[in-house]
Design a binder for these strands. Structure first.
Length: 273
DNA sequence: TACCAGGACGTGC
DNA sequence: GCACGTCATGGT
């Protein structure tokens, strides 16, 4: 089935390439997007962003289509911060995805002290090796592996995929989730969720913020990585050095809009706006 | 060659 | 509690 949505506040390029998601490929005049075991073909035509998939409900929620981004962009512009205004106005079609929770946990554990092209490659290799083989009208692909598939794999599978020293984290976390599930992560406040995520070996404050934001849609989260640190020093005249305190500073400034604004700033900085 | 990339852990104090 | 060295890997 097909979903069509006005492209003013839904730009597929910005939404996919802003760094929140690692599983997508260029395809024809658009993109193939993968989430968990699902796949969609997304492209733009005649002022509409079109989503073709066999699970419209899933991708309607995935792309966060039930949310007013005009209001969010308006709030971002109201701060009159040059980098933020440039990014929010130029990338107002950037949407925060609702991604699969377990997939986000593993993906952002891989992301630590790493760069985006490598992260994508490592995840792709792990999916190819351990994920279920799927077919779609656009060709075959591999689902993101279940936690039991990850837990059953030898740690060498992760190192051979290029995960480096993070291989043990992936084994440890997948075994824990395979045993106990992630039910205890549900229905928590942002603070409670982040605190619980920190009990997984390999998840620190930054990854916990990313998982809270990109998987649990805790929009009062503000992940601070090397790029956001640069933003803080160069565009906010920041003086703090502790990343957790920088997170606090931004969340105190932007409240429930923190996660959206973080993404505008991160993407805008990487685009050198 | 040294430094960087969506950082976290273990140790020592 | 905090500072610091270390942890794979590939690109520049």
């Amino acid at each position: 089935m097909r979903i069509d949505y006005n492209c003013e506040y839904f730009n597929i390029k910005d939404t996919l390439e802003c760094g929140q998601v690692f599983r997508f490929n260029h395809y024809k005049d658009g993109y193939l997007v993968y989430s968990a075991d699902k796949c969609a073909y997304v492209h733009t035509d005649g002022g509409k962003t079109l989503i073709d998939s066999d699970d419209g409900d899933y991708f309607y929620r995935y792309f966060d289509l039930d949310r007013d981004y005009g209001k969010i962009v308006g709030a971002a512009l109201s701060y009159e911060i040059p980098l933020l205004s440039k990014s929010a106005s130029l990338c107002k079609g950037l949407r925060l995805l609702n991604q699969n929770k377990e997939e986000m946990i593993y993906s952002f554990v891989i992301s630590q002290n790493n760069n985006i092209p490598r992260i994508k490659g490592i995840i792709n290799k792990i999916c190819t090796r351990l994920g279920e083989r799927m077919s779609s009208p656009y060709g075959e692909y591999y689902a993101f592996p279940s936690s039991s598939a990850l837990a059953g794999a030898d740690v060498s599978v992760f190192s051979e995929a290029g995960a480096g020293y993070r291989d043990g984290y992936l084994s440890s976390i997948s075994k824990r989730i395979c045993d106990e599930g992630i039910a205890k992560l549900e229905n928590l406040s942002t603070e409670e969720l982040k605190k619980e995520l920190l009990t997984y070996k390999g998840i620190g404050p930054k990854v916990a913020d990313c998982v809270a934001l990109f998987a649990f849609k805790k929009t009062d989260s503000f992940p601070v990585d090397t790029w956001i640190e640069k933003v803080y020093f160069e565009d906010f005249n920041g003086k703090l050095k502790d990343r957790k305190k920088i997170t606090e500073y931004f969340v105190n400034s932007f409240g429930e809009y923190s996660g959206f604004i973080q993404q505008y700033l991160f993407y805008g900085k990487r685009l050198n706006l």
